[in-house]
Nucleic acid binder design. Structure first.
Lengths: 146, 146
DNA sequence: CTGGTTGCTTGACGATCTCAAGCATCAACA
DNA sequence: TGTTGATGCTTGAGATCGTCAAGCAACCAG
């Protein structure tokens, strides 16, 4: 065998590291959102709005109750970051759309995640590709409910 | 050159993937905690208690206000998962300690994170080592405040 | 058109979070 | 010693987040 794969980290260690980085990124996101007067949940919802999304769809994406979404959208709408539009094919449905200001705001929040950006700068392109490949393999287990 | 490094993923894509996995792991954690009657925040606090930790230290670890910790510890203490002990060297300080039941509960929560565990099983030991190494390089950028 | 389902909102209630204020204790220093 | 300032924790007010139960409107299958 070749030179020393030093100590294979235990699953628990890897677990903990992933959790720590996830938390740190979330804090970074929350802090950037706060600078724009948004809570992290509001920013997270705004981040889903690449196009029109019905309230129900947002509840599914955010893994929460639909009634919760009502309140969050209410507050975003009051700030003019989001709009409710009737769905042409189903009058029960309300589609949520980000306004121009909404898009611009979430764009800035993403850009201002300094800690996250500088962390990724520690890797070169080949390493990022490797990392992406490995993380991508974790996806099915994590996102697919058993 | 050799076979096709396919498409180097953009930083944004990597960003999004890390965020998605972090969220999925958090949901997994929250679901496991809920099965034991704990909110995710309560479980997260409990997870910090390998030894006695003063209230102030918990506030720092959880990145929140000290008054917030008071409430969370109140509820955990009411369930007997946690205890407040006076600090022998500073009478202002209260150290929080997990009870036996508290330790056992958080142990089970970790063990029941099925999605997370099965996701990690998708990698063999060498891959986990590589992944750990790469993630570890992200640490300084993310955890160190600029 | 009737009955069951689905999408959204409302209201009640608990948990989380921050801020301001307050009390007890500590640490430093005249 | 005693006074001053900082620190640790709690309390109370107020906003947000989150769930559940109930209600209304609209869809859909028969």
């Amino acid at each position: 065998m070749t030179g020393t794969t030093p100590q294979p980290p235990s699953k628990a260690q890897l677990l903990e590291l992933v959790a720590a980085l996830g938390t740190a990124q979330w804090q970074d996101f929350a802090a950037a959102a706060a600078r724009h007067g948004l809570t992290s949940v509001q920013a997270k919802l705004l981040a889903q709005l690449k196009g029109p999304v019905p309230m129900r769809g947002l509840a599914t994406l955010l893994v929460c109750d639909a009634s919760n979404v009502t309140g969050i959208v209410d507050r975003l709408e009051a700030r003019g970051l989001v709009r409710r539009e009737p769905d042409p094919s189903d009058r029960r449905v309300k589609n949520v759309v980000a306004t121009d200001e909404g898009h611009e705001t979430i764009r800035r929040v993403r850009a201002e995640m300094q800690a996250t950006h500088s962390a990724l700068d520690a890797l070169d392109e080949a390493e990022r590709t490797t990392l992406y490949g490995l993380l991508d393999r974790l996806r099915p287990g994590l996102e697919h409910r058993v």
